[in-house]
Design a protein around this nucleic acid. Structure first.
Length: 268
DNA sequence: AATGGGACCTGCGCGC
DNA sequence: TGCGCGCAGGTCCCAT
């Protein structure tokens, strides 16, 4: 569930807390989350390096380290980065030169840590679509114009646009009054413009409120994000639409829970 | 090109 | 009370 706003929140917090610190120790409690290189090598190769720079690309987080190595972290569903952390909960914990621990938690073990020479050449990064904030309205409209797929799965496709997941796509489509099943290229110019505007608006607001703590997501400090009270449709099946009082529906689209207002969001 | 399914995973809530 | 099951969704991979 961590999407662009959650990962951006974490990135900003890490900049304030661990940037410039040196990694002085590593404890691996579950090696499953370490995808590259093998855990022993990972441990050996990361020791002594300093955290030089922190970057977010879509939902991926990159810690650039001294000596031309980078740690790519993808939280997937239940990954957390906690500082200062306590060892017990962490799948992997890093001792830092501050004397405190940076912990990687991951209840479901779906996340991944990769220590690599060149993070930009990772396949996931290579195929990532544009950052929403780097995209122009004209480019967005152009990209939509050829797509016959449904708008909701398209916006969640990380190779189409980076950073939007199941929660924010629901919010964006609700605010743009567009049904999740609309064919992408069938959107009018006005709808495309509204959609583009709402993508940036919703993501910006969610970053401002430090993300949505629906499942496991918390800030680096361990505190919850504050955007949940601002959600208009996600998770509101059977409740009244805030605009028209119609009951919010939940359907399955592309195998994902899809919330929308059948009256406000036109599917044709 | 688009779509649907399964795989990876665990903990929760549900029905019986 | 306890057990088994479905479900949550980010990404990859495969089949059609």
């Amino acid at each position: 569930m961590p999407e662009l706003p959650e990962v951006e929140t974490i990135k900003r917090e890490l900049e304030q807390t661990v940037l410039g610190k040196k990694i002085t120790g590593v404890v691996i409690n579950n090696a499953k989350v370490i995808k590259l290189p093998e855990p022993e090598k990972f441990k050996k190769e990361i020791l002594g390096r300093k955290i030089k720079n922190i970057i977010r690309q879509g939902k991926a987080l990159v810690l650039e380290l001294s000596g031309n190595k980078s740690l790519m972290v993808h939280l997937r569903m239940t990954g957390q980065l906690i500082y200062p952390a306590d060892t017990k909960k962490a799948r992997v914990s890093f001792s830092l030169s501050s004397g405190k621990l940076l912990g990687y938690n991951d209840r479901r073990l779906l996340g991944e840590l990769k220590l690599v020479d060149d993070w930009r050449s990772l396949k996931f990064i290579q195929t990532l679509g544009p950052e929403p904030f780097d995209l122009t309205e004209a480019e967005f409209k152009q990209k939509l114009s050829t797509k016959t797929t449904k708008i909701k799965p398209l916006l969640m496709d990380q190779t189409f646009i980076a950073g939007i997941g199941n929660l924010y796509v629901a919010e964006v489509l609700f605010r743009a009054k567009i049904g999740p099943q609309r064919q992408a290229k069938s959107l009018s110019a006005k709808e495309k413009a509204t959609l583009f505007c709402q993508i940036k608006k919703v993501l910006t607001e969610a970053i401002h409120f430090k993300g949505s703590s629906i499942d496991d997501y918390v800030q680096v400090s361990g505190r919850k994000g504050n955007f949940v009270p601002h959600l208009m449709v996600y998770g509101r099946e059977g409740e009244n639409c805030f605009t028209c009082k119609t009951l919010i529906k939940r359907i399955s689209l592309g195998g994902r829970g899809t919330y929308f207002c059948p009256k406000c969001q036109k599917n044709a």
